[in-house]
């Protein structure tokens, strides 16, 4: 069974996000970038499936500019067997990403697609669902546990839902998206980082894959959230009641 795992290069979750002065987007100049944390979890799960004998090969895929190649190397250092880099400098929206991944899934004859549940830059939470739709495959999103039964050709996926756990049984091939508690991604060790340098990475373009990636959504503007006002310490309950009544006018 071949697993295709998608990885996205995003702004580091600790980096300070600055909106461009013209509100056309986020300023990414000199900002620390790294693999989307949910993608990291997807890679870890795919590698575990291989280590556990359920998968025979893990192919990591990224879509983005040249620098996204670093993210692909990280996936390879974590244990993916080879990589495919869809080289695109411009904006690629979730639907286009899903189409590219669908094309690659067919080309690579993958039986399972692993993705993060969302990317922390745009928080769209659409790619996995879109991919399943385009392929006509069953999907299990927000996975917190994945068990693959190769013989039965099924995957059992546990999801955290409001008020408890839900377990789905899917017929493979399928699409699974990873939630935070699925696993704890491993560190890339030195020997594996070195090995990763020698692993094969194919570079393709959307055009070569026959996919139209023209944006369908128009971004109107990006704004910073309003600044929260600092709290005030009050000295007594009396003062609190007074303020609630006369200032906030809520009681």
């Amino acid at each position: 069974m071949r697993v295709l795992v998608a990885v996205k290069r995003v702004i580091d979750y600790n980096a300070r996000v600055r909106v461009k002065p013209d509100k056309s987007g986020v300023d990414l100049k000199n900002v620390k970038m790294g693999m989307n944390p949910f993608c990291e979890i997807a890679v870890e799960e795919a590698v575990k499936l291989k280590e556990g004998g359920s998968a025979s090969e893990v192919v990591a895929v990224t879509i983005g500019p040249k620098a996204a190649g670093d993210t692909l190397r990280t996936a390879l250092a974590m244990g993916a067997d080879r990589g495919v880099h869809v080289l695109e400098d411009g904006e690629v929206q979730p639907l286009a990403v899903a189409k590219l991944l669908a094309a690659l899934t067919r080309r690579e004859e993958a039986t399972l697609c692993m993705l993060g549940k969302q990317a922390i830059d745009d928080d769209s939470n659409q790619t996995g669902q879109g991919l399943a739709g385009l392929l006509g495959w069953p999907q299990a999103t927000f996975a917190s546990k994945v068990v693959v039964d190769r013989e039965a050709g099924r995957a059992s996926v546990t999801r955290e839902v409001d008020g408890g756990l839900e377990t789905l049984s899917l017929k493979l091939p399928a699409v699974i998206t990873a939630d935070l508690r699925l696993n704890e991604p491993r560190y890339a060790t030195l020997p594996n980082i070195m090995k990763a340098k020698k692993k094969k990475v194919d570079t393709v373009t959307a055009q070569e894959l026959g996919v139209d990636i023209t944006p369908r959504l128009k971004l109107v503007k990006v704004e910073e959230p309003a600044k929260r006002q600092a709290g005030v310490m009050l000295s007594s309950v009396k003062e609190l009641v007074d303020r609630l009544r006369n200032e906030a006018k809520v009681i």
């Binding site: 580091d12 979750y13 020997p191």
Partner: peptide, 28 residues
């Protein structure tokens, strides 16, 4: 990254470093 990798490759090649990890992001 280039400097660190070159440094680690050589120290590891010489056996002064047995194993190691390089943090891939600020969380690590």
């Amino acid at each position: 990254a280039a400097m660190l990798e070159a440094f680690l490759e050589s120290t590891m090649g010489e056996g002064r470093v047995l194993d190691g990890v390089v943090a891939q992001d600020s969380r690590q």
